[in-house]
């Protein structure tokens, strides 16, 4: 029993974070927002980092890593607000595709879009060479998201599997955690800089207590997410339940972080001028994606109340 990330896992996460901090900053988001929100150079950079091959087996040209590593990468994609379809293609779809397709995913040639009846949209359908759970239609209607960097298309006939849903909910939860952490850091920076009544507003307890409450929410969402990744990676019987828990916990953290951060920023938070809005809007989008809070709560209550799940507490790591 050792609930610590391995040295390799920590190094992977740090490498991705360092790369994205340097190459994928807020100025880039503004440039994408002014343009058409995608840039092939960003995708190529992610491919060069090897991130398209995270889950692809080594004999298909990938790194052959697992879902804990995928979740760590997804946390960083959330933190940097990456919009390229890396999470969908490499962290969710890859294991559900053929060996040939996985090779193409690893080289960055194949992008995959995901369709499922929990979502009324398919993200990045126009770039996709493969649609899991749906079909590729040239005439799909574009939909406008509140998140200026999401590219959505209307979806009608879908057949996405439960496995796809679980993987996507897990990776979405991981992004929400990264988003929460970044929003907290934006709000903390602002509270340290903004001066009113002759002092940084972060010196006022009202501000401190707001931000501390966000830190608590994040702290207790993180291990829930990591357990869910571990459980799905190891085919534990309760993996789906743990994923739902992770999606609820990270959604709650991200929504609280967003609402708190806009309050701490005051009127500036209500503008397009500060960077906060990019992350806040991504949080709103992902909160509803791949099963909203109510959907996942229903899955949890089915487990907890029907007696199907023995709630004995020595079982938080149960394989059954």
């Amino acid at each position: 029993m050792d609930f610590r990330l391995t040295q390799d896992q920590l190094e992977l996460q740090n490498a991705v974070r360092d790369y994205l901090t340097a190459e994928h900053d807020a100025a880039l988001l503004r440039r994408l927002d002014a343009g058409d929100s995608r840039d092939p150079a960003i995708w190529d950079g992610l491919v060069d980092m090897g991130l398209t091959g995270i889950l692809v087996p080594e004999d298909c040209g990938g790194l052959g890593l697992g879902l804990v590593e995928a979740a760590l990468v997804a946390i960083e994609l959330g933190r940097a607000n990456v919009s390229e379809p890396l999470a969908d293609t490499a962290l969710i779809a890859a294991p559900l595709t053929s060996a040939e397709q996985q090779s193409e995913i690893a080289t960055g040639k194949l992008k995959v879009a995901l369709a499922h009846n929990v979502n009324p949209w398919i993200a990045d359908l126009d770039q996709a060479g493969l649609v899991l759970g749906g079909t590729h239609t040239e005439s799909a209607t574009p939909l406008e998201s509140v998140d200026p960097l999401r590219r959505l298309f209307a979806s009608d006939e879908t057949s996405g599997s439960d496995d796809l849903l679980d993987r996507a909910a897990l990776i979405t939860a991981a992004q929400l955690l990264g988003i929460s952490e970044h929003i907290l850091s934006l709000a903390t920076d602002y509270a340290n800089q903004r001066v009113q009544f002759g002092q940084p507003i972060g010196k006022f307890q009202a501000i401190k207590h707001h931000l501390a409450s966000v830190a608590v929410k994040i702290e207790f969402a993180r291990p829930v997410l990591l357990r869910a990744a571990y459980a799905l990676e190891n085919n534990h019987g309760r993996a789906a339940l743990h994923i739902s828990h992770a999606k609820v916990a990270t959604t709650d953290a991200a929504m609280l972080a967003g609402e708190t951060a806009i309050q701490v920023h005051g009127a500036m938070g209500y503008t397009y001028e500060v960077d906060l809005h990019f992350w806040m809007k991504r949080a709103w989008a992902l909160a509803g994606a791949w099963g909203d809070r109510a959907f996942h709560i229903r899955r949890i209550e089915a487990g907890v109340f029907t007696g199907a799940l023995e709630t004995n507490h020595s079982n938080i790591f149960s394989k059954e």
């Binding site: 610590r4 829930v224 990591l226 209550e301 907890v304 507490h313």
Partner: peptide, 28 residues
Amino acid sequence: ARDAVLQAWMDAEAYALNTYSVAAQVMA
């Protein structure tokens, strides 16, 4: 009340998971 019970159940799990996580770090 149903939501509150589920939240209580989730929070107790989260607290346990966090403790296992911190315990592992303290042991290291």
